[in-house]
């Protein structure tokens, strides 16, 4: 009896956990499967018909899809760069400096994350229209919106990393004849950099994936999620699944390469 209890205690949670993880991967599996679906001649676009490589060989076949992909990447890149810079500066202010209005600022950073996207998107739209920009919605308005919602997530990520940094390290650097700039660039920045990088990756994926806010403020500009949405009514082209799967694989490769690289470096250092 006791032994059985132990076994359950040991393996039940991990088994259940893996089941939850599998549940999270069902859609990815289906997307990957459908990327090999030969949908030509079929009217039901939500069922697997026959295997083909065609979708992978001609990913840009659907009209406007790759164009929308390019727009999404451009917006995500610019939004990531701007949000990461602004957010990193703000994190330094919040962690390292005492100034009046600090707690107000913390609240202001938190609020966008506590606001439903539909509210944030519609309020931006209301502003743009009130400012007479109702006719010129597009790249710039999308960008403004994306920087806005990425900003808070960047601050939260970088702030955590910065708060965990031992301030004695900077003091030690100063004690060892590094002036303020040298201390910042040789000690503080390299140590906070992983946090900044993580924040940038998060910002990129948030921006690339956003639909609700973008949809309200995009005018005639079409991002990749908007392309998917637009074609969903008719049934999405199978190439969308190719893009989805490819992005998943590319990201996994990047993450794995980073991890393996870090381990190999550690191992080399240990042997030296």
């Amino acid at each position: 009896m006791h032994r059985a209890g132990n076994w359950i205690g040991k393996h039940l949670m991990i088994t259940l956990g893996i089941l939850v993880l599998i549940y999270m991967y069902i859609p990815n599996f289906v997307v990957a499967l459908m990327s090999f679906n030969d949908s030509s001649g079929s009217r039901n676009l939500y069922q697997f018909q026959a295997f083909t490589w065609d979708n992978w060989l001609n990913p840009c076949e659907p009209n406007g899809m790759c164009e929308s992909l390019r727009v999404s990447v451009e917006i995500a890149l610019v939004a990531t760069i701007v949000a990461t810079i602004l957010g990193t500066l703000a994190s330094f202010a919040l962690v390292r400096h005492r100034f009046e209005g600090r707690s107000t600022m913390n609240l202001l950073i938190f609020l966008p994350m506590a606001t439903p996207e539909i509210v944030m998107g519609s309020s931006l739209l209301a502003l743009f229209v009130a400012a007479g920009m109702g006719g010129s919605l597009g790249f710039v308005t999308i960008l403004i919106a994306h920087i806005l919602f990425c900003l808070s997530f960047v601050v939260v990520t970088v702030r955590t990393r910065l708060a965990g940094l031992d301030s004695n390290l900077e003091k030690a650097a100063m004690d060892l004849y590094a002036n303020e700039w040298q201390t910042f660039w040789r000690i503080t920045f390299p140590l906070v950099f992983p946090g900044i990088l993580a924040a940038a990756l998060l910002a990129f994926s948030l921006s690339f994936d956003d639909f609700i806010i973008t949809n309200l403020n995009s005018g005639t500009t079409v991002t990749f999620p908007m392309f998917v949405w637009g074609s969903a009514q008719r049934g999405i082209p199978m190439q969308v699944n190719v893009i989805g799967t490819a992005m998943f694989l590319i990201s996994l490769v990047i993450v794995a390469a980073g991890e393996i690289g870090a381990r190999r470096r550690a191992k080399m250092l240990a042997q030296r």
Binding site: D166, N168, L169, A172, A173, D175, Y177, A178, P190, L191
Partner: peptide, 28 residues
Amino acid sequence: KPFRRPVNTVFQNYALFPHLTIAENIEF
């Protein structure tokens, strides 16, 4: 300023720079 004093400190928890090697720490 601390970096202009002919004084150096061995910190309580050492405050070794975690991203630098031992030689780089010493060479700092």
